[in-house]
């Protein structure tokens, strides 16, 4: 596991913990979109269908359980907990989230890497995750009054997305066969989409900063290639066998 992936997972975990902290201790879900949370519960349930069949690592299994458990408990709190329920901004959270699900399902049926139930569901979860934040962004725009915890939640979520992109860039150069173009492209789309949306400044700033660092890492890779080409051209010019410095 590379540092971008680990940092991405950690910021994802922090975002969930921030939200749980707000809901569990302050007993408030003001400014939090139930629609987005329901979509995330659907995202994790369709993505982690392999949780009991394929074992990758203890880390993966534990994290999957945390994301499944936390997303369903957030939905439960917002729907059924007496105190939390009261702070839910129902009148502003009117995004028709069901209309996001169907296009994602159709897209997953059309564009996937393998036509099996698990794989199509995985692809569906990737597409849905890319747009699941939309009801939340719309709610933030409508209410305007954004408290610290909600702001931090969205910031960490944006950081997680961007760090995962860096992770895929890194993996593309170190283990190209592992890179799934579906997830990379859909994540890039959501970043571009957010730029167009221009709603939430911290989300945008985090994405911007991390995109800049993606370019930096791309630049470093180019330098490494330049190094290679230097030796390559030299060996060709002097007509000797190519050897690279350790």
């Amino acid at each position: 596991m590379n540092v971008f992936r680990l940092a991405g997972d950690m910021t994802h975990l922090i975002s969930v913990l921030v939200l749980l902290l707000k809901i569990h201790t302050i007993k408030s879900c003001a400014g939090v979109s139930l629609k987005t949370q329901e979509l995330y519960a659907l995202v994790f349930s369709t993505r982690y269908l392999d949780i009991f069949t394929d074992f990758t690592s203890l880390y993966n299994t534990v994290m999957k359980l945390i994301f499944l458990g936390s997303s369903f408990s957030i939905v439960w709190y917002m729907r059924h907990h007496k105190l939390v329920q009261r702070s839910y901004d129902k009148d502003h959270d009117t995004f028709r989230h069901q209309f996001l699900v169907l296009p994602c399902l159709i897209l997953a049926l059309l564009i996937h890497e393998q036509f099996t139930f698990k794989e199509v569901m995985w692809t569906f979860s990737i597409y849905l995750e890319a747009v699941a934040i939309l009801p939340q962004l719309v709610l933030l725009q409508r209410t305007r009054n954004i408290d610290n915890l909600t702001g931090q939640y969205v910031f960490f979520l944006g950081a997680y997305r961007s760090l995962y992109i860096l992770n895929w860039i890194y993996r593309y150069f170190t283990e190209p066969h592992y890179v799934h173009w579906i997830s990379t492209t859909s994540m890039f789309c959501v970043v571009l989409f957010c730029f167009g949306f221009t709603i939430f400044k911290w989300y945008l700033i985090s994405v911007l900063l991390l995109t800049l660092s993606a370019w930096m890492s791309g630049f470093v890779q180019t330098l490494l290639y330049a190094d290679f080409f230097y030796y390559y051209i030299n060996s060709w010019k002097n007509n000797v066998k190519l050897t690279l410095q350790a």
Binding site: H12, S57, E113, E119, W122, Y178, H180
Partner: peptide, 10 residues
């Protein structure tokens, strides 16, 4: 080339 697609990420 592998039979199933591996998903080792979250």
């Amino acid at each position: 080339d592998s039979e199933t697609v591996e998903h080792d990420e979250l």
